[in-house]
């Protein structure tokens, strides 16, 4: 049984996994980090998005062994010292979530967008979110939240 070591939310972790263990299973089952969700089985919904070495990936489409040695950030690791990340704050401020199930992946994806494009326009935001499906919000307030976060992170 392979053993993997990685840094998750700044903490060094090690665990025995099977070759087939997905990163999302390792996070949810081995580390009890249940903020990362599974909403589909075709790598499309994005409820499972986390950051691996600073970039957003679908943790349901990555083996735990592929993350060996990596730096992983999940939704649980985004707030620092009890302070919400500006993206989390913007989602709250703009009612960018309803049932909350897609939200962790949505937020992690949005954070990656602003890393790559700090000033996205509405069209760029909507295009970037192709890999994140939300059934509740109609995306309207998610787009607004990302615009708000972009503005506050510049400021």
């Amino acid at each position: 049984m392979p053993s993997v070591s990685m840094t998750v939310n700044g903490r060094a972790v090690t665990g025995d996994v099977e070759g087939r263990t997905l990163l999302v299973q390792f996070l949810r089952e081995n580390l009890s980090l249940t903020g990362t969700h599974v909403g589909c089985d075709t790598s499309q919904c994005g409820a499972c998005v986390v950051h691996v070495n600073g970039e957003s990936v679908k943790s349901c489409t990555m083996l735990a062994v592929q993350a060996d040695g990596a730096e992983v950030t999940t939704i649980e690791g985004l707030a620092k010292d009890g302070e919400l990340h500006p993206m989390q704050e913007a989602f709250r401020e703009n009612h960018g979530l309803q049932c909350g199930f897609c939200t962790p992946g949505m937020v992690m994806s949005a954070v990656d967008l602003l890393q790559k494009n700090p000033n996205p326009d509405e069209g760029e935001i909507r295009e970037w979110l192709e890999g994140n499906i939300c059934r509740c919000t109609g995306y309207h307030n998610i787009v607004k939240a990302i615009q708000t976060a972009a503005a506050s992170m510049k400021g």
Partner: peptide, 19 residues
């Protein structure tokens, strides 16, 4: 009013059945 439930959902502390 901003939603009371959002903090837990935004920080990965929601508790769904599979959790």
């Amino acid at each position: 009013v901003k939603r009371k439930e959002d903090f837990r959902f935004l920080t990965g502390q929601g508790r769904y059945t599979d959790d």
